[in-house]
Nucleic acid binder design. Structure first.
Lengths: 338, 338
DNA sequence: AATGAAATTGACAGCGTTGTCATTATCAAA
DNA sequence: TTTGATAATGACAACGCTGTCAATTTCATT
């Protein structure tokens, strides 16, 4: 049923090694020979056995995706991006959700690496933002690419894909300011996440740039969840200085804020503007639809995977850095301040 | 860095075959020997090389997940379920999103199978509901488990996990009827999906059981999407016989219906009750929160994966069938008919 | 202590590739 | 035509494990 390289070699009248050369796109094969081989390959539906390749060779044929994130949209986007790169390059993808808090994370990853030879790991927050963790992974002798928040790479440990949350956050806040808002609240995600830190920094920067005083009472700590958005909005809307706009740190929080506003009989965007962040599908499925910033997760992940694959092929040690800035998308949840 | 079976054998003072026996939990190893070996295994952090195992042995150490579904919550749930089973059994998971409409689906899957030896494939709709497709996969000599809608398995091709959408749909419709509704609309998903068919069948059955006439004008074809829900609700609410309740075929459609109702100034649930199906996270994140039926996707997927793993281990040909019935969850989007 | 069956262990080949190195073909220049 | 350099090809040994089958040990019985 499954053809082996031997079958192909016989059928094409060449040695196994020549078939191997063709399958690996090596240059030193005559055009004629190459065609003969490909003909046999197609006729027999030959696919090189991955296990044998892994065992015999030194190249890798798969990459792993490490994450700890409850956000389905985020994970799926990332995954699809990585898969796109994998498909194009003939790689397989291994999925590894982990508990960042667990003491065994590193052991788990180490075990996985010991048994499966991967071209490298795609790390997302919070893993990508833990330098000691990244270092330990590298000590395992695996390549790594980090997707993280920031405008400059924090170190030279490994290639980075930087998401400029700061700049995007300035855009959103500026958008609210342009609509005439002065009392703008900020509902954050987990304070330990760089994305929260960076978005908060952007928010403050925009206020400062426009000579608006920063009011700490309008800045709420939270988590990246709907519930947290409900909670945060309730809290902030019962402050003495009632805000006329809320910048929620992601779309889920924004959806929660929307929910809370509804509970409190506050109409959006007439009495209160709400902005999210991420442009996840449901930012289009709330009522009203959310103003947000588009974070191109799929592209980012594809980029990351390609970086890893390229690095594994070229054996280059160069740590490239890529940059992405989420773009403002104005929808119906933000309006003029009255 | 990476310890091999040889290293362990030396350290433990036994042959590699004995180490192999221990790693595979074979019975004919003396307790003392087993302990010696395990000690060495732990000391060296030995993990059997997957590639070598695949190449040398006849067992499989991974399973594949085939799907074509734009619903992130669904995919993630399924995936997490499969991963849970995999983790427990030391299996790896290969993810394969496919375009059901593409002519190359089968070739893609065939290629994957030719190069990677898997214990089997987990098929979800629409793949699981295409008998010829399933047959062709089986002809490839791969095991398969199907997750699909229905109350009885349609054939003996492969093990099935049946989701009783019919019964669940009866519950939901009955719930609406119990609230006093008589004009109940039904907004369907893709007509080709068995889940749509089954849910429609349940809806009709409940009406019939309660001597309520079926009004075809209240039955709308659609897709499993938010937009389709918006569309369907607008359409059905402009009929002569305005319904007092809408049963949307899944939560996304229900969210869309909610959105449309809001656009039309219809208050939920006072003027209109809306029910969804699936209990996806955002059924809790709409306003008001959706009455729905809980489809335990994660459990279902875990079950499927375990079936596959067990089958691959025991070489048993028995095609087991499992059943799940989604349970009604009453929230705030449905209320008494006035 | 001797016997034999059952339990335990090991030697060795082979899984389907790739890496290394040797061999053969090719072709421009002498 | 011969030569030498280079391009193409092939032979063969790994890679790290499991399957097969043979060898050894164990232990209850004689």
């Amino acid at each position: 049923m499954k053809a082996t390289i031997n079958d192909v070699a016989k059928q094409a009248g060449v040695s196994i090694k020549t078939v191997s050369r063709v399958m690996n796109n090596e240059s030193s094969v005559r055009q004629l020979t190459r065609e003969k081989v490909m003909e046999a390959v197609n006729a027999l539906h030959y696919q090189p056995n991955l296990a044998a390749r892994n065992l015999a060779g030194t190249k890798a044929y798969s990459i792993a995706f490490i994450y700890d994130n409850p956000n389905a949209y985020y994970v799926i986007d990332m995954q699809n991006g990585i898969l796109a790169a994998c498909k194009q390059q003939g790689f397989e993808l291994l999925i590894h959700p982990c508990q960042a808090k667990s003491e065994h994370v590193l052991d788990e990853i180490a075990d996985m690496v010991r048994k499966t030879r991967v071209a490298g790991l795609v790390l997302t927050p919070p893993f990508s933002e833990m330098p000691e963790f990244v270092q330990k992974i590298i000590d395992l002798d695996v390549d790594v690419v980090r997707i993280m928040s920031g405008d400059v790479a924090p170190d030279e440990l490994a290639p980075c894909i930087m998401v400029n949350d700061h700049a995007a956050s300035v855009s959103i806040t500026q958008h609210l300011i342009d609509l005439g808002h002065k009392n703008i609240a900020f509902i954050g995600g987990e304070a330990a996440h760089m994305s929260t830190v960076e978005r908060l920094r952007g928010y403050k920067q925009a206020l400062t740039d426009n000579d608006i005083a920063i009011d700490e009472r309008l800045i709420i700590d939270g988590e990246y969840s709907f519930e947290s958005g409900v909670h945060g909005a309730k809290q902030v809307m019962s402050e003495d200085v009632r805000p006329t706009a809320i910048f929620s740190c992601n779309d889920e929080i924004a959806a929660g804020s929307l929910f809370a506003a509804r509970l409190m009989g506050i109409s959006i965007p007439d009495q209160l503007s709400i902005a999210g962040f991420e442009n996840s599908p449901f930012s289009r499925q709330t009522w009203p639809r959310l103003t947000t910033a588009n974070q191109p997760n799929q592209k980012i992940a594809e980029d990351a995977a390609n970086l890893l694959i390229a690095k594994s092929r070229k054996q280059t040690a160069q740590n490239s850095v890529r940059h992405y800035t989420p773009q403002l998308i104005v929808r119906d949840s933000t309006g003029k301040s009255h």
